[in-house]
Design a protein around this nucleic acid. Structure first.
Lengths: 342, 342
DNA sequence: TTGTAAGCGTTATCAA
DNA sequence: TTGATAACGCTTACAA
């Protein structure tokens, strides 16, 4: 009802502090908030004391308002309740904090119209950067409008960054999906595997395509069978569930383009009484933390999220365009889900 | 360097829209931002058209500034890279969104001094509510200062909410830890288990204590052995690692006060070649999503995060104090990690 | 229903 | 080094 009166007491403002300290508002401002300007140590002392005495809390809205930009980095993600993106968010927050920024997370549920709404709302917040992570849909029309919206944001002084997302025309931070997958393919071929089933993403995402292609190249070009499925735990599970047993038996290895898919595969195999790795081997991609809880330990490709976070924050803050630099290297990690074969 | 000039182009303001539409600024405001005031449909139409034409984006900082409070709910959490809190955050965001609010997540790494800093920074943002989730330390001095800070925030019109946290004097949303744990204890005793090792939290948290006590009461008062350990995966693992094998053999069941701990236990048991549930049974608490990936499926106590999120948002928005209502019920879920025994 | 005018808290410009 | 003073973009009495 009555918004401002809620709680009654008037808030302490910079003016109050200045008055108590016997200085002008600008001087108080120069002391309390980061300014290069010098203030005499006598005044500085009095202002600090006054601020402490009144328990002054700067009004971030007012600061953001007058500065025209906030200390916020917006992180836009399809989902947050999964280890991969929440780990990425955690790394990003750590990194941002050490640079004096904070991260706001927005979830889109992977729906294009939600993405658009989220960006509109975010623009209103005037964040320093808007960072998109992962697997966006490729809906040309939807993306066109989204790209327009983001361009408008950039024109107004913001920065758009994409993490391993390729369907929008903005600066990009990518992993070397292809090389990591190729390394995995080589390693597994070297262990003696010969008939691999690869689960790709039914949503056509360039990054996922690179993983499939890279693996195929490293493993043995032409021998790999690919199935497209939902990019999720359920997607992995469903492929196994729906595949006739005799068909599944033709493979000695199943590889998911994400760990989540691989975990879905393992769950389904378990249900059907197939043992990993005795009956069939499994591997994933990303090296999410959940892997420490599965047995046997899952072979995967490690993605160094700390490096990603560091790059994101550096570029988000940098005034200039850095271009889409070299991809961040990834490397295969062999574990017990893929022991030497034959 | 030059903050405001970044990007060059002046931003479109409400004034521009009003001028193009040929109306006053307040009228444009009434049309574009939620106001109860009526505007003639002719003017409404012109304003909307003008806004679209100029691609007007409201300045949320200015709005928050002048309104004295933002549409933000701050969610303060020890860590975000775990299934439990990220699931809770996800539920909270869903719920908040449908009420027209958005959630900002702040991570404290469970360090008291970080908690204090985070709250200070959050206060500056003037969020509608600050919500603390989970396991805070009990450091009386640290908490005293924190409580002061939060009281100041409430006096200024904000709302503090605690989710299953009991070391601060504010409105609380709690689960029925005791009843859930008691139900679990009864159920497991009913299955024939007789010698339980319960892993409690070495940090003295009331909620965790209730779980230990509840379980003990339900299982068989006096027969349960309790070990305190770190409230984490590592904490669970360490207990098993450090326990002499013959001592561990005395138990037919290990219960962690969180699923994370239980998963740590399972990992350690695996390493030491003890099979679950054949050699020893394991149970946890929370029913996190990671459980779908472990085998055998873990017995636990389900905590309905959707209900929690709903309660949080409702109370965060409500102008009045609701008191710390009845706890949200939890219920045991029996799975294969604790089959009938003997 | 509409417009005028005041004010929100802070920073930045500029003159002292 | 300091202090008037003018923005910043928006909302909200209050008056028309």
């Amino acid at each position: 009802m009555n918004e401002t009166a809620r709680g009654g007491r008037r808030r302490v403002t910079l003016y109050d502090v200045a008055r108590l300290a016997g200085v002008s508002q600008p001087t108080a401002s120069r002391v309390l908030n980061g300014s290069d300007r010098q203030v005499s140590s006598a005044n500085r002392e009095r202002v600090l004391r006054a601020a402490r005495e009144l328990a002054y809390v700067p009004n971030a809205s007012a600061q953001a308002f007058v500065r025209g930009s906030s200390k916020m980095i917006a992180f836009v993600v399809g989902r947050i309740d999964g280890t991969y993106f929440s780990s990425m968010a955690a790394a990003l927050m750590r990194e941002a904090r050490s640079a004096g920024y904070w991260v706001s997370i927005a979830v889109t549920d992977r729906q294009p119209e939600r993405e658009l709404r989220v960006v509109r709302e975010l623009r209103a917040q005037r964040p320093r950067a808007i960072v998109f992570a992962g697997s966006g849909f490729i809906d040309p029309t939807g993306n066109e409008v989204l790209a327009d919206e983001l361009s408008g944001y950039e024109r107004a002084g913001g920065k758009v960054l994409l993490i391993s997302r390729t369907d929008l025309p903005f600066e990009r931070i990518s992993f070397d999906n292809r090389a990591g997958a190729e390394g995995l393919g080589q390693a597994l071929a070297g262990l003696g595997y010969q008939r691999a089933l690869v689960l790709g993403s039914e949503t056509p995402l360039l990054g996922m395509l690179h993983r499939v292609e890279g693996f195929s190249d490293g493993f043995a070009p032409g021998t790999v069978e690919v199935r497209q499925t939902a990019l999720s735990w359920e997607g992995g599970r469903d492929v196994v569930e729906r595949m006739p047993p005799e068909q599944l038996s033709r493979f000695d290895l199943v590889v998911g383009v994400t760990d989540e898919m691989a975990l879905g595969v393992m769950a389904a195999l378990r249900v059907h009484g197939r043992r990993v790795p005795d009956d069939i081997a499994v591997a994933g991609f990303n090296d999410i933390r959940t892997l420490r809880d599965v047995s046997p330990p899952l072979t995967t490709v490690h993605v160094p999220l700390d490096l990603v976070a560091e790059a994101v924050v550096r570029r988000a803050i940098a005034g200039h365009e850095e271009g889409s630099g070299p991809p961040i290297p990834t490397h295969p990690v062999l574990r017990e889900s893929t022991p030497p074969h034959h």
